[in-house]
Design a binder for these strands. Structure first.
Length: 550
RNA sequence: GCGCCAAUAGCUCAGUUGGAUAGAGCAACGGAUUUCUAAUCCGUAGGUCAGGGGUUCGAAUCCCUUUUGGCGUGCCA
């Protein structure tokens, strides 16, 4: 908001002075407060164009700028930075606007209603969601919330691999457990089968419905029944887990359904039309190496079944056909190879590759008592999303997952997340919110309210702590825009943690409610209400509760 | 071998896209509570931004290279 104002002020001056300039000069907030509220490299970048020294150029701009009421201080520093300090009134007016917007503060049309398909988690429907999915869930959902808030049109989709090899193995695993119930005990459970306890539970559930009658079915019918039952139950299980995690999808895209619609064949025929396929060793290949892949890939196996690549290409074609402008795939780090194949296909089909963005979430380690918790899917020893939520709570889990850059590995300290103490950053932020609530309560008790507040009194807010807080509040829209555009929701917890810190310090140093200074108290209440509002908005966008009391 | 990702304080991580003296939290040490919530605050200490080279007014950030770690490199998904 303010930055834009400065930007246009500067441009006006440049035109007035008939100076040449490149529009992409920057206005930024310096680390060092002595360098003013804002700083621009305008003269540094554009001096050459005008054949003068940066400092000379800066001086000329300064002369005009300093006459304006909104700028209380203009300084030239270093090689030619222009450091600007704004008058408090600028901040007071901006604060007023922010308060007016209430819970919509920070929202905008920034994304221009761009249609975005955000695919995340897309875990196999062969078991409960694990912690890897949990990171994806927190990341994807928060990103979606933020993007929507700043004006993107986001459609959240979960791709369900409910067809193919893995699902067959699932059915067979269930069958083995079912047979166990009926006395057919194996010496050793096959290593490739799913070992988790949940398969046993499913077998018991199935048995309580169907009893022993499945034994007399033909093998195909029995396995079909097993498969459908398992898929339905596991799907319910996953949806349930996500619901508890406050994650909702607009669509669960079933691979089985896609296959029924014949789009696999369609995809294959498109590739064939582009002369991208050939036969070798009784298999059908895709000449993906012509399109940037390291080698060619098999599309149809010698046994006549498609590889997983085919439905995936087909699925992505549907993404293009459904009219999205941006498609974001959130994937684990073990999908690099997968992406090079997929991108090869997209190139081959002459689809716009730049519309497809891949975000890789790096692995996470769970840390317990200083040790990495070892997990093995095969042995059924995994920590599930449900376990995690039960253990540390939704709020802490989501916070910890979003708090890290997507591309960085994440060590999730279970004990830290559980601690209800100052070591835990989640509570630090929530506590600030709760604390403000209690101050507001106290103010009501003292009969100090904002009902008859006249904003002209805002000039009483002139402590540097107060102006800094206002600046921080006003930064929310920028943080959200950047988080959305960069697909980096971690910027939000970072930001709100800093805001909470500034508030806690302010609180410790200054009395907010003091009946002897009625108007000043009002001003401060006004200010901390805005802080509270920003914290509430931020937490909501992270899917974390904002408690009134702790 | 090749490809992708990473390396910043003892630990976990930020670093506003190339800006000025690299920041938080935790852990360590010392302090603050008859108070609007101490789940808080104040102070001390902690760094060859993995190493080297390059690009320029200016590099943790961009390029090259070396080292270390994770992952990938299936007619598995």
């Amino acid at each position: 908001m303010i930055k834009q104002k400065i930007f246009s002020d500067l441009k006006k001056i440049l035109k007035e002075l008939k100076l040449k300039y490149d529009k992409n000069f920057q206005i930024e907030i310096p680390h060092n407060p002595e360098h003013g509220d804002f700083s621009t490299n305008l003269a540094l970048i554009n001096a050459k164009k005008n054949r003068i020294k940066p400092r000379t150029m800066a001086e000329r701009i300064k002369k005009i700028l300093i006459k304006k009421r909104d700028y209380s201080k203009v300084e030239i520093a270093g090689p030619g930075f222009i450091n600007l300090t704004l008058a408090n009134g600028v901040y007071h007016r901006a604060l007023k606007k922010a308060i007016k917007q209430d819970s919509r503060f920070g929202s905008s049309r920034h994304g221009r209603l761009k249609k975005v398909l955000l695919e995340f988690i897309s875990a196999n429907p062969t078991g409960p969601l694990n912690v890897v999915s949990a990171r994806a869930a927190a990341y994807g959902d928060s990103l979606a919330r933020i993007m929507k808030f700043v004006g993107y049109k986001v459609f959240k989709e979960f791709y369900v691999n409910d067809a193919g090899n893995q699902v067959d193995i699932l059915a067979e695993s269930l069958e083995l457990r079912y047979r166990e119930i009926h006395g057919d005990v194996m010496e050793e459970f096959p290593p490739e089968a799913y070992h988790g306890e949940y398969i046993k539970e499913l077998a018991h559930q199935l048995n309580s419905i169907d009893g022993s009658k499945l034994i007399h079915f033909t093998e195909k019918d029995r396995l079909d029944r097993m498969k459908n039952f398992a898929l339905r139950e596991i799907h319910k299980m996953q949806m349930n887990s996500l619901e508890k995690f406050d994650v909702e999808f607009d669509n669960w895209m079933s691979e089985k359904k896609l296959r029924k619609e014949g789009i696999l064949e369609e995809a294959l025929s498109y590739l064939a039309e582009e002369n991208c396929t050939y036969e070798k060793d009784e298999a059908v290949w895709f000449n993906s190496s012509e399109y940037g892949d390291v080698k060619d890939r098999v599309l149809i196996k010698a046994d006549g079944n498609p590889t997983y690549l085919v439905p995936d290409i087909a699925y992505h074609i549907t993404k293009y056909n459904r009219g999205f402008e941006v498609m974001i795939d959130v994937l684990g780090p073990d999908h690099h190879a997968h992406v090079s194949k997929l991108k090869a296909a997209i190139r081959a089909l002459k689809l716009d590759e730049s519309m497809l963005e891949i975000v890789y979430l790096q692995h996470i380690n769970l840390i317990q008592a200083g040790e990495i918790v070892k997990m093995s899917k095969r042995a059924g020893k995994i920590v599930t999303l449900d376990d995690l939520v039960a253990e540390v709570g939704k709020d802490a889990a989501r916070y910890f997952f979003i708090d890290r850059r997507p591309s960085s590995h994440l060590d999730f300290d279970l004990e830290l997340a559980k601690k209800k103490s100052n070591e835990n950053p989640v509570y630090y932020v929530q506590y600030a919110h709760a604390r403000i609530n209690s101050i507001l309560k106290k103010a009501r008790k003292e009969k100090i309210t904002l009902k008859n507040f006249q904003t002209k009194h805002l000039r009483k807010l002139r402590l540097s702590a107060e102006i800094s807080l206002i600046k921080k509040i006003l930064d929310l829209p920028n943080v959200l825009n950047a988080a959305a555009d960069k697909r980096e929701p971690h910027r939000l917890p970072n930001y709100v943690h800093e805001l909470a810190g500034m508030f806690h310090k302010y609180y410790a140093k200054y009395k907010i409610v003091s009946p002897d200074h009625y108007e000043l108290s009002q001003c401060r209440l006004y200010l901390i209400s805005a802080v509270k509002n920003v914290i509430a908005i931020s937490l909501d966008l992270m899917g974390i509760s904002a408690p009134k009391k702790m």
